[in-house]
Design a protein around this nucleic acid. Structure first.
Lengths: 199, 199
DNA sequence: CATAAATTTGAATTTGAATTCAAAAAGTTA
DNA sequence: TAACTTTTTGAATTCAAATTCAAATTTATG
């Protein structure tokens, strides 16, 4: 296995380990997840913090790019809007990627490094929504009731928050319910029923 | 100092310690915050988990009751709505109560105990918003554009999410900006300008 | 004040994890 | 295959935190 491959494998193992044990994950837990000894991990990442940072950064990167991917084949703004919403929520409380982001979110309040990462993720997601909203306004699919940046920030905020609720296992607020709640807002602000879209 | 007083003092110290060091706070950090030795803490709480639970529970209790208090002297639904929104957001990233809730939120994805606590806090906040919205509809101050429960859940979600953003030190999304974003939604859904309210 | 009870301390022990490193194993190249 | 390099291991050490507990201190009570 080549060096970058091994590093990537370690990053993935670290993501799983954080997801399972939280941000204060131990080196031996990472090693176990990767199927090697702690010293071997240290050989590739002499400073474990570098590994934690790489793992979180990669987790965010993946989350964002999966959302971009989920809509890039779609054409209408309404379809895009519906699907970017659906792709931002965890299906259930076992979603590993969102679990990682939640852990990160709790830590960001006390750790500048993580705070910067998450802030940038938020802003990029806002950009994604905003571009869809503006395209929809231009094509007359949407009649925006507030400016696109305001709506975009609120949409990202809603899905962030419902992500936490789903991950906490809310008994009634599941994936579908959260989608509907966010879509209720999206419909109000775009004056588009967002309906004739396979969901 | 009486026994309940000492326990309360320990709970407060633990809240500060979690707020500063995160959920994986060490016993000696709690002790230091309380100005005593680890063994003394253990004398009152032989199981540190009990103390952590008590601290988090009390933190949520305080957060919720402060919000109820913040509006109980107000009469108009519009005023109440504005102030309950304002009272739910941290003024800046140093807010200790919200810092605690953020840490808790990250942990809730992996810990049922915390998940139950946070879920119940969410539901209670929804109840608070919902009662204001329904009162406003009854008094004809509000013309609700969706059902009160939907709007209430979205309002709580928005303020949860913006709390995280503020705690992560977003460069432009500060307290006032977050208020405006949430109020933008509230105005749309109530058809009330929510203006003639001291802010 | 004297005594008993409650509380706190600090030292000793145990535990778990991080770190270091020489030696073994695996992989590469000539 | 031999010599060399990279990677991994496991044992030894160090470090940090949890735990235990007898003794000291403080507080309450008669």
């Amino acid at each position: 296995m080549t060096k970058p491959e091994r590093k990537f494998q370690l990053v993935e193992a670290t993501q799983r380990a954080i997801s399972e044990h939280g941000v204060s994950v131990k080196l031996h837990q990472i090693a176990q997840e990767a199927g090697m000894t702690p010293s071997a991990v240290l050989y590739h990442y002499p400073d474990v913090n570098d590994l934690l940072l790489a793992a979180n950064r990669a987790g965010m990167e993946r989350f964002y790019s999966e959302r971009v991917q989920s809509i890039e084949l779609l054409s209408s703004p309404a379809e895009k809007l519906v699907w970017v919403i659906r792709s931002g929520l965890p299906m259930d409380r076992h979603d590993e990627g969102v679990r990682l982001l939640c852990a990160l979110g709790g830590e960001a309040a006390r750790n500048d490094m993580f705070a910067v990462l998450l802030t940038s993720l938020f802003d990029r997601q806002v950009g994604l929504y905003q571009s869809i909203l503006e395209a929809g306004e231009l094509s007359r699919d949407f009649e925006l009731q507030s400016d696109a940046n305001t709506i975009a920030r609120n949409l990202v905020a809603l899905e962030d928050a419902y992500g936490y609720r789903i991950m906490a296992g809310h008994p009634t607020l599941n994936y579908e319910e959260a989608c509907e709640l966010i879509l209720d807002y999206a419909r109000s602000m775009t004056k588009n029923s967002l309906r004739n879209v396979k969901g």
